[in-house]
Amino acid sequence: MEGRRAELLAGVVLAVLGALSLVEALRLRDDWQGARLMPGALGVVLVALALGHLISRAPAVAPAWPAAVGRARVAALLVGLVGYVVVLPLAGFLASTAVFVLALLRALRGGGWTRSLALTVLIAAGCDLVFRRWLGMPLP
């Protein structure tokens, strides 16, 4: 049942993307052998695939979503990652990377603080040295 629901949802997403593609094709001021060709053709394909999902009679495989603990871990990691990317231009590469690594090490590994701090310095300073100083990447 859950598998069928996921397929219906995927069908709706594909239908929306197909509709967006068709609308974009119509919006472009060109002929159907020009700029409109690919968005138009792809829109038709996406709508056909959406219909395939919606009317499919093949047995649906249930999604392999994790248990509550697993979901929480994924959500926490994503929040941490987004936070890291947001803070990076503000706090600079070295500081934001150090905080991100330390948080991740504590969450995934636990154990003693000394070891976590040593690993944090090693990883953050190592990356800063290689990418920012040696390779000259314009990281903030």
């Binding site: 991100f100 690594v101 995934l108 590994r109």
Partner: peptide, 14 residues
């Protein structure tokens, strides 16, 4: 993996 994961994510961002 607790060490590898941060490295992979930092490499990904860079």
């Amino acid at each position: 993996y607790a060490v590898m994961a941060p490295l992979i994510l930092i490499f990904s961002v860079i």
